Simulated scan of single mutants.
Amino acid sequence: MDVLIHAVVGLHIIGIAALLGGFLTQMKALGQGEGRMVPAMLHGALTMLVTGVALVGLNQAQGATVNTVKIGLKLALLVVILGLVYIKRDEEKVASAALGTVGALTATNIFIAVLWT
């Protein structure tokens, strides 16, 4: 079971990398007001959602305690990220505030995962 959990954690990290990487590729365009939500951001957010839910289920199945407040906060941030990316995915240019919000919420989600013990 530990190997499965570690594999899902690896996939979760790949999702985070896709979401954050997609945002970082748009930093130059963000400064010029021409940023857009790239497909990697949507796929990364969806990967994070699926693997995050799987991780909670696998950890609970193993009998580990899960910090539901932390997981709930991370889920809420991810739902906002996913909503913004999904709604704005087909637009040629998105507002810098929307793209910046996705980046900030992604970074916040990462810091919550790492620092909240």
Rank of each mutant, 00 (worst) to 15 (best):
H6E: 06
V9A: 12
G10C: 07
G10E: 01
L11A: 11
H12V: 03
G15S: 06
A17M: 10
A18E: 03
A18Y: 07
L20V: 15
G21W: 01
G21S: 11
G22S: 03
F23W: 15
L24P: 01
T25R: 02
T25Q: 04
Q26C: 08
M27F: 04
M27Y: 08
M27H: 08
K28N: 13
A29C: 10
A29T: 01
E34A: 01
E34Q: 11
G35C: 10
G35Y: 10
G35V: 11
M37T: 13
A40Y: 12
M41N: 01
L42R: 12
M48T: 07
M48L: 06
M48Y: 00
M48A: 12
T51Q: 15
T51I: 02
G52L: 03
A54F: 07
A54T: 12
L55K: 00
V56Y: 07
G57I: 10
L58E: 08
A61G: 10
G63F: 02
G63P: 01
T65W: 07
T65S: 13
N67A: 07
N67E: 03
T68Y: 02
I71L: 11
G72K: 00
L73D: 10
L75A: 13
L75T: 10
A76L: 15
A76R: 07
V79F: 11
V80M: 06
G83E: 10
G83T: 01
L84W: 03
V85M: 00
V85C: 01
D90C: 00
D90Q: 11
E91F: 13
V94K: 03
V94F: 04
A95D: 12
A95G: 14
S96K: 06
S96C: 04
S96M: 06
S96R: 07
A97T: 07
A97S: 13
L99C: 03
G100T: 08
G100W: 14
G100C: 08
V102M: 14
V102H: 14
G103C: 02
G103N: 03
L105T: 09
T108V: 06
N109Q: 05
N109I: 01
I110G: 09
I112Q: 03
I112K: 02
A113I: 01
V114R: 13
